[in-house]
Design a protein around this nucleic acid. Structure first.
Lengths: 186, 186
DNA sequence: GCAAATTAATGATTTATTCAAG
DNA sequence: CTTGAATAAATCATTAATTTGC
């Protein structure tokens, strides 16, 4: 609880911070433009999870441009990586019905599985619920048979599988299919 | 029988992949965010090697979100499982001699952080970064046996890190830099 | 022009996973 | 079955941008 932030001198507000200047804002690391540039270049070059050694070197080098600690470098890569991914995901999603779980989860007795509850909630949006198609019927035929099948089949029949794949139907808005993702083996 | 893959229409390339966009890229399956989410949730819920039956149902359901074939589902699980394992293996490569040193460190400015593994980059589901790069070969501080620190340590030592608000003196290598930050690999 | 108020970015923490070892 | 190692996702919190009223 000894919070360091207690004795950080609040320095010049506004006017940007001096890169290597004297401003010692303590609250949190505030990277300089040069620091950000180098970090970004490293990231773009493919570095995503620098090792300790790398972090220390980066930090050491970047300290020339201003105050910085190793942990800042670590956090920067963590955040940048995560947010780039986030950004990509957002972009790739055309219509995201991302509804926070609210209430009634139908009468699924399988709601004991938290993940599934979430999945169901996400997929079946509030608007409309059509038909429930069970991915994993509780009374599915012997899973033993299914397991032994394995997907070596796919390699052989890869082409034939694609038969029933509709393409072109994914663009228009159909009713939301409801995935009933209860696993039979659970 | 009828091979779909033969008549996939080459559509708009670039412009992101449309999750629900119209592009019908044929080259390879490009999962939408929703598809990835459902698959990931299934995986997290314990599904690792879906049966043929399961795969078909999953594919059928996911086709609502975009083009998909059963084989894609199959391959996804194969790849995801394998890559998760790979990732963990890489991380725990040097874990052989696991010595817990979550104790008070930070005595040595350089070696307080210890434990390591060598992950320069981990492959993400969508992103690929495969090049290995050296950060700053100029100063070959190879004294570190490439021991990577676990950054949980940073959290623990956060207070100690922030204790030193000195900037510049934090690293023993204060020899300024020459700013030779040219990234050797750039 | 300028600050107070509001919003957007992003640094820092916490939490939930994964595989693998014991 | 439990625990260790190590994230990555989700979240919290603080700083910078910006908007707005004067």
């Amino acid at each position: 609880m000894d919070d360091i932030s207690s004795f950080c001198m609040k320095a010049a507000r506004g006017g940007g911070n001096g890169g290597g200047g004297g401003g010692t804002k303590c609250g949190r690391w505030n990277p300089t433009a040069e620091q950000v540039k180098v970090l970004t270049d490293l990231f773009r070059s493919g570095l995503r999870t620098p090792s300790t050694d790398q972090i220390q070197r980066i930090s050491s080098q970047l300290s020339y441009y201003g105050k910085i600690e190793s942990k800042n470098v670590f956090y920067w890569f963590q955040n940048h990586k995560a947010r780039e991914r986030q950004k990509r995901r957002r972009v790739s999603t055309a219509k995201e019905n991302h509804h926070p779980l609210q209430h009634n989860n139908l009468n699924n007795n399988s709601s004991s599985l938290t993940h599934f509850a979430e999945i169901n909630e996400v997929i079946q949006s509030e608007e409309r619920v059509i038909e429930t198609l069970q991915l994993f019927p509780l009374n599915s035929f012997s899973e033993t048979n299914s397991e032994k099948l394995r997907y070596l089949e796919y390699k052989e029949n890869a082409s034939s599988f694609s038969t029933y794949n509709n393409f072109g139907a994914y663009d228009d808005q159909m009713d939301h299919p409801t995935l009933d993702l209860r696993l039979s083996f659970l």
